[in-house]
């Protein structure tokens, strides 16, 4: 097999325009960070889709499981009082 399979995988994040967050758009292989950036530009921003790009080695990402029964997100599940709609306010109270 060629050296291609040894090129690490990078995840690509693009900021669409000023004022927006970088958003994950996909991945690519590259021999190093600089080439990863250049390739990401050619692959993911051929039509002005971005003003800034981040690349990060895929193996450098730590992720939670996406499993919905994972208790990881349970702490926020039962706290309805964190939402404004939890509080009943009479209709005649203005601006609230």
């Amino acid at each position: 097999m060629t050296a291609r399979s040894e090129w690490p995988l990078y995840e690509v994040f693009v900021r669409g325009k000023r004022g927006l967050n970088h958003v994950h758009v996909g991945s690519l292989h590259a021999p190093d960070e600089r080439m990863a950036l250049t390739n990401a530009r050619d692959l993911y921003t051929r039509r002005n889709e971005g003003v800034s790009i981040w690349v990060v080695r895929s193996d450098a990402i730590t992720a939670s499981t996406s499993d919905e029964i994972d208790p990881f997100f349970a702490p926020s599940g039962d706290k309805v009082y964190r939402h404004p709609t939890f509080y009943a306010i009479p209709d005649d109270v203005p601006h609230i």
Partner: peptide, 27 residues
């Protein structure tokens, strides 16, 4: 034609999230 190359790469990238290896797919 450059877009077609790009489309191929978006899709190989999606295949890799399923555990496929890109070099292996080319092979």
């Amino acid at each position: 034609v450059q877009d077609e190359a790009g489309h191929g790469l978006y899709l190989y990238s999606a295949a890799e999230t399923l555990g496929a290896d890109r070099a292996d797919l080319t092979e």
